[in-house]
Computed example of a mutant assay.
Amino acid sequence: MSTFQTARAALTVYYDGACPLCAAEIRLYRRSEEAERIAWVDVGPEGPAELGPGLTRGAARARFHVRRPDGTLVSGAAGFAALWAVLPRWRLLARLARLPGVLGLGEVAYRLFLPLRPWIARRVRSGGPRCDKACG
Results as ranks from 00 to 15, higher is better:
residue 94 A to M: 04
residue 29 Y to A: 09
residue 9 A to P: 05
residue 87 L to I: 04
residue 99 L to S: 01
residue 58 G to I: 00
residue 49 A to G: 06
residue 76 G to E: 04
residue 4 F to H: 15
residue 113 F to W: 11
residue 92 L to D: 09
residue 72 T to N: 09
residue 13 V to N: 00
residue 111 R to V: 08
residue 67 R to N: 03
residue 92 L to T: 15
residue 97 A to V: 09
residue 23 A to Y: 10
residue 60 A to H: 04
residue 74 V to D: 12
residue 72 T to S: 07
residue 97 A to M: 11
residue 52 G to W: 07
residue 108 V to W: 13
residue 102 V to R: 01
residue 109 A to E: 06
residue 122 R to S: 15
residue 52 G to N: 11
residue 64 F to T: 03
residue 21 L to Y: 02
residue 74 V to Y: 12
residue 33 E to R: 14
residue 104 G to K: 08
residue 64 F to W: 07
residue 8 R to D: 02
residue 8 R to W: 08
residue 86 V to C: 13
residue 119 W to F: 15
residue 121 A to P: 02
residue 31 R to E: 08
residue 124 V to H: 02
residue 16 D to M: 01
residue 136 G to H: 01
residue 96 L to A: 13
residue 73 L to H: 06
residue 84 W to P: 03
residue 113 F to T: 05
residue 26 I to W: 01
residue 60 A to G: 01
residue 106 G to Y: 03
residue 6 T to Q: 06
residue 119 W to M: 11
residue 129 P to V: 10
residue 101 G to I: 03
residue 37 R to E: 07
residue 2 S to D: 14
residue 12 T to A: 06
residue 61 R to W: 03
residue 12 T to C: 02
residue 35 A to S: 06
residue 92 L to M: 12
residue 79 G to E: 06
residue 42 D to P: 04
residue 97 A to N: 07
residue 112 L to Q: 11
residue 86 V to Y: 08
residue 90 W to T: 06
residue 79 G to M: 06
residue 115 P to M: 03
residue 26 I to F: 10
residue 46 E to S: 14
residue 35 A to N: 05
residue 61 R to F: 05
residue 135 C to P: 01
residue 56 T to S: 14
residue 70 D to C: 15
residue 51 L to T: 08
residue 61 R to T: 00
residue 49 A to M: 08
residue 54 G to W: 10
residue 54 G to K: 13
residue 17 G to A: 08
residue 21 L to C: 07
residue 18 A to M: 10
residue 10 A to M: 07
residue 44 G to Q: 05
residue 97 A to W: 10
residue 31 R to H: 09
residue 55 L to C: 09
residue 80 F to G: 05
residue 51 L to Q: 02
residue 15 Y to V: 03
residue 43 V to L: 00
residue 48 P to W: 01
residue 85 A to E: 15
residue 33 E to G: 07
residue 3 T to C: 09
residue 61 R to G: 02
residue 33 E to D: 13
residue 18 A to P: 05
residue 127 G to E: 15
residue 89 R to S: 13
residue 126 S to D: 15
residue 32 S to D: 09
residue 75 S to V: 14
residue 28 L to V: 15
residue 11 L to N: 11
residue 49 A to W: 08
residue 38 I to K: 04
residue 93 L to Q: 08
residue 41 V to R: 05
residue 50 E to S: 15
residue 35 A to E: 00
residue 15 Y to D: 02
residue 128 G to S: 15
residue 49 A to K: 08
residue 7 A to H: 11
residue 112 L to K: 11
residue 110 Y to W: 05
residue 114 L to G: 07
residue 29 Y to N: 06
residue 62 A to M: 12
residue 73 L to Q: 07
residue 108 V to E: 02
residue 93 L to C: 05
residue 100 P to S: 03
residue 41 V to Y: 00
residue 1 M to N: 08
